[in-house]
Computed example of a mutant assay.
Amino acid sequence: MNKFQSVISDGFELNYCIKGLGRPVLVVGSSVYYPRLFSENLYKEFQFIFLDHRGFVKPPCALEPEDDILDKVLDDIETARQALKLEDFIVLGHSGHAFMALEYAKKYPEHVQKVVLLNSAPTNSPERQQQSFSFFDENADPARKRQFEQDIALLESDIKQDPERRFVHMCIRMGAHSFYDYTFDAVYMWNGVYTNMPIIDYLWGNTFGKLNMIQSLASFDKPVFIGLGRYDYLVAPVSLWDSIDNTDGGKVKKVVFERSGHNPMFEEPHSFDTQLIEWINEGK
């Protein structure tokens, strides 16, 4: 059972959950969802701090998303960092949260030692999203495609019954795009996860489409670990990252997990843990 604490930022009550001891790794996202993905083995090496952002908590009042919502999220993370007294830490972002992690490290570099970016495409532009769907259509095996067709056919009724959790329903019904084992049922992973849909819709549907992490990394001077899944059709293909080739003096390390989809920390925990632990401890 995870023990949650909270910090208030701009009226939002952001929960966080701390697991393990050692060098701190701040995981941006949902404090409920993400502890379910990482192995206990990592907590023997490091202190993982799972922090909500305002897309996963109830708003203090009615709100309209604005163009500066990402800046506000980054400021929330900084408020939490100060409250937690993190002076030298690693920031980790998975999927859309990779954009947050990198943008946070750019805006507040003083205390960030390293950055971990997991299972994201360089941009979330509509063109890239269509490229990922096309890659699935052209490369997924027939059984995976059939599973996807069966699952996605249920999405409309899911959303109709529970529209405020449409992000969750979509993530679950996209399982054949998300997991190496395309029959895996991820429902339990999302139990108890609140979604603030106006913020999620704006970040994923607008903000992240305007960012490009490859361009950002060109002028970024901290060590970066990029973890990708060979069967991660949500952000496919991994060749989108081909310009990052592990030969730029060691600043960026890219690892492709060959038997994983969107969650290599869950699907290949031994390999993932080995790679991440080794990288974090380099130059210790």
Rank of each mutant, 00 (worst) to 15 (best):
F266N: 10
D75P: 07
F225G: 11
T207F: 05
G227E: 07
S216P: 13
E164F: 12
G22M: 03
Q5I: 03
Y43D: 07
P126W: 02
G250Y: 04
Y194G: 10
A121P: 11
N212R: 10
G11A: 14
K19T: 13
I226S: 12
L203A: 15
F220H: 09
L211E: 04
V27Y: 10
R36F: 06
I226K: 10
W190V: 02
I90L: 10
P126Y: 01
Y108M: 05
R54T: 15
L86N: 15
Y194P: 06
F38D: 10
R230A: 11
F133A: 11
V27T: 15
P163F: 04
I214D: 15
K44L: 06
S95E: 14
H53D: 09
D88N: 06
V238P: 03
D88R: 05
L92S: 02
F38W: 03
I49E: 09
Q215T: 13
I159T: 13
L102I: 03
S6D: 12
E66K: 08
F38H: 09
A176V: 03
S134K: 11
N2I: 12
D137I: 05
G229D: 07
G205A: 14
V252D: 15
L51C: 13
L117K: 09
V32W: 01
P223N: 03
R259Q: 10
L37N: 14
K85Y: 00
W190H: 01
S30C: 05
T195Y: 01
N212G: 12
S134G: 14
V116P: 02
V25A: 14
F167D: 05
N139C: 01
R81A: 09
I152M: 05
R146M: 08
N119Y: 06
V25H: 15
V193K: 02
E45W: 03
R128K: 04
F225D: 10
V252F: 14
M213Y: 04
A80C: 12
L154A: 00
A80K: 07
E64Q: 09
E110A: 08
Y33M: 10
V168C: 13
P237A: 05
D185I: 08
E45R: 07
A218M: 13
W190F: 01
A121V: 10
F89C: 05
Y202M: 08
S39E: 00
C17V: 13
D245R: 00
T274Y: 13
L86I: 08
P142L: 01
A153S: 07
L74T: 10
E127Y: 06
E78S: 00
V193T: 06
P269G: 10
L92F: 04
N212W: 07
P163N: 12
R230D: 13
Q47K: 15
E64T: 09
D245Q: 02
P269S: 08
Q275N: 09
Y43P: 04
Q147E: 13
H262Y: 12
Y33D: 05
I214V: 14
Y16M: 08
N246A: 04
C171V: 13
F4D: 11
P35C: 06
F136N: 08
R54A: 15
T79C: 00
I90P: 03
W241N: 04
V32M: 01
S31E: 01
K222Q: 01
P142N: 02
Y108D: 08
T247G: 11
K58D: 15
N139Q: 03
K107G: 09
F4E: 11
V91S: 09
N41P: 12
Q113R: 03
I226D: 14
V28D: 01
